[in-house]
């Protein structure tokens, strides 16, 4: 009797976990979407949530069932699986589950990955350079001439010249430099070149599904196409020291007019 009660309780634990877990997981967790390639990532995440959710509930319910049934038995089931059954069942089930999960991943994922990385910047993409440092984001626009001025680490002074701009370079004269605040016009692609002055940081725009480590000594790039206007946040996603948790920036998508007005104000 006690065995049966215990078995039922354990089965209830796993079955309960499955249903409560599925209920909890079925909420909308993703931050609001604001980029084009992000739709592909969200599709991937939703597909995975659905398939893994189904596998999760099925697995736990089967486990609960076996436990419930097993605790009621006085003798083991008469039939033992033959070697052939063992091989077929485990291989069959295993491969099927893997195929469903991974097949979807491949089908949905590869195009997204290709779009994200093979995308060449369109002609009118807005060019931005972001230089991360402990614990802020230096932002630079190339200005009217569309060319970034030369920088040199030897020229860096954190207070007066955080980017190490070469004052003698004519291209640098019209560069617009800011801190922690990125504004872009709606309707154009955004092309960000990432630098880091000290340790590895990571440029994370949760709403745009953009994340790229800013690695000192390298210049990784991201290209994406905003699909919403608004004010969004930029977070650092690679441990960079004690203020890693408050290395916040803002990313604003505004109309072309507002953008030009804003740019004018920066100079």
């Amino acid at each position: 009797m006690q065995k049966k009660v215990e078995g039922s309780l354990v089965a209830l634990l796993f079955a309960g976990t499955a249903f409560i877990g599925a209920w909890w997981g079925a909420h909308a967790w993703l931050p609001s979407l604001a980029s084009r390639h992000g739709a592909g990532i969200d599709a991937m995440l939703r597909y995975l949530l659905l398939t893994t959710g189904a596998l999760f509930v099925t697995g736990y319910v089967v486990l609960a069932y076996f436990i419930w049934k097993g605790s009621r038995r006085d003798a083991i089931g008469k039939r033992f699986a033959s070697r052939r059954t063992e091989r077929l069942l485990s291989a069959g089930l295993g491969l099927t589950m893997a195929a469903v999960a991974e097949g979807g991943v491949l089908a949905i994922g590869m195009p997204v990955w290709s779009e994200y990385f093979d995308a060449a910047p369109t002609g009118d993409a807005i060019e931005i350079e972001v230089t991360a440092q402990q614990f802020m984001w230096n932002v630079r626009y190339p200005g009217q001439d569309g060319v970034f001025g030369r920088t040199d680490p030897a020229l860096v002074d954190d207070t007066t010249n955080p980017l190490g701009l070469d004052r003698n370079d004519p291209h640098g004269k019209d560069d617009v430099i800011g801190l922690n605040d990125i504004t872009v016009p709606f309707g154009r692609a955004v092309h960000v070149r990432l630098h880091s002055k000290d340790v590895i940081h990571s440029f994370f725009l949760p709403n745009f599904r953009v994340k790229q480590d800013a690695v000192p000594g390298m210049t990784p790039e991201v290209i994406f196409f905003p699909t919403q206007t608004g004010h969004f946040e930029l977070a650092c996603a690679e441990l960079c020291g004690l203020a890693h948790y408050r290395m916040r920036g803002t990313f604003n998508v505004v109309s072309q007019k507002e953008f030009e007005e804003w740019l004018r104000q920066q100079k």
Partner: peptide, 21 residues
């Protein structure tokens, strides 16, 4: 693939069992 198969094997080991919890 091998991890799923292993997991299925563990779960299937409970099939037909006389469980002592």
């Amino acid at each position: 693939v091998p991890m799923t198969i292993f997991g299925v094997n563990m779960l299937a080991s409970l099939w037909g069992a006389k469980l002592d919890l």
